[in-house]
Amino acid sequence: MFTEAQLYSPVTRGGDGAVRVRLSAEHPGAQDREYRARRDAIAALALAHTPGEPAPRVAYTEREHAVWRTVSAELARKHRSYACAEIRLAAREFGLPADHVPQLDQVSAALAPLSGFRYAPAAGLVPLRQFFGSFADRVFHATQYLRHHSAPLYTPEPDAVHEIVGHGTQLASARLAALYVAVGAAARRLRTDAALKFLADVFWFSLEFGVLRERGEVRCYGAGLLSSYGEIEEFRAARLRPLDVAAMGTAGYDITHYQPVLYCARSFTEVEEVLGAFFTGMDDDTPARCARDGRLPV
Rank of each mutant, 00 (worst) to 15 (best):
L23I: 11
D40W: 12
D201W: 06
Y253R: 05
R57H: 08
D201M: 13
G17W: 08
R36T: 11
S81H: 11
E157F: 06
Y82P: 02
R239M: 11
V67E: 00
A186F: 05
L111K: 03
L153S: 05
H148S: 01
A195D: 03
P242Q: 10
A76F: 06
Q170W: 01
V71W: 00
Q31C: 10
R36M: 11
F2E: 14
A136E: 14
H162D: 06
E157Q: 10
R188C: 12
T169W: 00
S9Y: 06
T50G: 03
D285T: 15
G116D: 07
P152Y: 12
D105P: 09
D16P: 11
R69S: 00
V67S: 01
P56A: 12
E208P: 05
S134R: 13
A136M: 08
R289M: 15
L75A: 08
E214M: 01
Y229G: 00
L89M: 12
G281E: 13
G168A: 04
S227M: 07
A59N: 05
S267V: 06
R241G: 05
P156F: 08
Q144T: 12
E93V: 02
V183P: 03
P260T: 15
E272Y: 09
A142M: 03
A265Q: 02
A182T: 05
V139M: 07
H65C: 09
V11C: 09
V218P: 02
H149D: 14
F2N: 15
I232F: 04
G276T: 09
H257T: 15
M282P: 05
G230W: 11
G116E: 07
F135I: 07
R39P: 10
G15A: 15
L199V: 10
H100Q: 11
Q170I: 00
A182G: 07
S228R: 01
A37C: 14
G224W: 03
R292L: 13
V19A: 00
F117E: 06
G116S: 09
V271Y: 00
L75F: 02
R92G: 13
F117T: 00
Q103Y: 04
Y60I: 01
F278H: 09
E64A: 00
A277L: 08
F131L: 14
E217Y: 04
R292G: 09
T143H: 10
F205D: 02
R292H: 12
S150N: 07
G281L: 11
L190K: 08
T50Q: 13
A223T: 04
G133K: 13
V161Q: 02
R239C: 09
A237D: 10
R22S: 15
A177L: 07
L128F: 07
I87L: 05
H148P: 10
T3E: 15
Y60C: 05
S72Y: 01
E234I: 11
V245E: 05
R36S: 10
V67C: 05
F205R: 08
Q259C: 12
L45W: 11
T155D: 04
L226Q: 04
C264I: 05
A251F: 14
A109P: 06
A41E: 14
V161T: 03
D293N: 13
G15I: 12
E270L: 02
R88E: 07
P113L: 11
Y145W: 14
E208S: 01
L240H: 13
D283Q: 13
E233V: 15
Q31A: 15
H141W: 14
F132M: 15
A186N: 07
A195K: 03
P121I: 08
Q259R: 14
V101N: 06
Y154K: 09
V274P: 03
V181M: 04
G29N: 00
G124S: 14
